[in-house]
Computed example of a mutant assay.
Amino acid sequence: MNLEDLGKALQQARKQKQWTQAEVARQLGMSRATVSALENGTVNEIGIRKVMAVCSLLGLELHVATRQSKRPHLHTLVSEAEQRKRDKEPK
């Protein structure tokens, strides 16, 4: 999950409760702009305690998981394809 995914989940949970960003912000003592930036994945810096507070208020939890490996780069895929071709060539 990245910051954009987190923001979408927060926004969805907020809308299910039929709360405005201003209502969430007021309940947590933060600005509406911070809530908006968090939901849009554009927040520059935010403390983990604030993220956890928003999640808690909205009935969500954060979970930590092992990062999945990244997708290979194009040059890696090309190299592997070339190697498979060479392996199939008659010797």
Rank of each mutant, 00 (worst) to 15 (best):
M1C: 02
N2H: 05
L3G: 04
E4C: 00
E4V: 06
E4K: 05
D5K: 01
L6V: 10
L6F: 12
A9E: 11
A9Y: 00
L10W: 04
L10S: 04
Q11L: 01
A13F: 05
R14M: 00
R14W: 00
R14L: 01
K15D: 01
K15A: 07
Q16K: 06
K17W: 02
Q18Y: 05
T20D: 02
Q21M: 13
A22P: 01
A22R: 13
A22N: 13
V24D: 02
V24E: 05
Q27W: 03
Q27S: 13
G29Y: 03
G29L: 04
M30K: 08
R32A: 14
R32Q: 15
V35C: 04
S36C: 11
S36T: 10
A37Q: 12
L38Y: 03
E39K: 03
N40K: 08
N40M: 11
G41S: 05
T42M: 09
T42I: 02
V43R: 00
V43D: 00
V43Q: 05
N44K: 07
N44M: 01
I46E: 06
I48P: 04
R49G: 12
K50W: 02
V51Y: 05
M52A: 09
A53F: 03
V54C: 06
S56L: 11
L57W: 02
G59V: 06
G59N: 10
L60G: 04
E61T: 08
E61P: 00
E61N: 10
E61I: 00
H63P: 00
V64R: 09
A65P: 00
A65D: 07
T66E: 15
T66L: 12
T66Y: 05
R67A: 14
R67F: 02
R67M: 06
Q68A: 14
Q68L: 10
Q68H: 07
S69I: 03
K70S: 14
R71H: 06
H73D: 15
H73M: 12
L74H: 10
H75S: 14
H75C: 09
T76F: 06
T76V: 13
L77K: 08
V78Q: 12
V78P: 00
S79E: 14
E80C: 06
E80D: 15
E82I: 11
E82D: 14
Q83G: 03
Q83F: 06
Q83V: 01
R84Y: 10
R86V: 13
R86W: 08
D87F: 08
D87I: 05
D87A: 15
D87P: 02
D87W: 09
K88A: 14
K88M: 13
E89A: 13
E89G: 06
P90S: 10
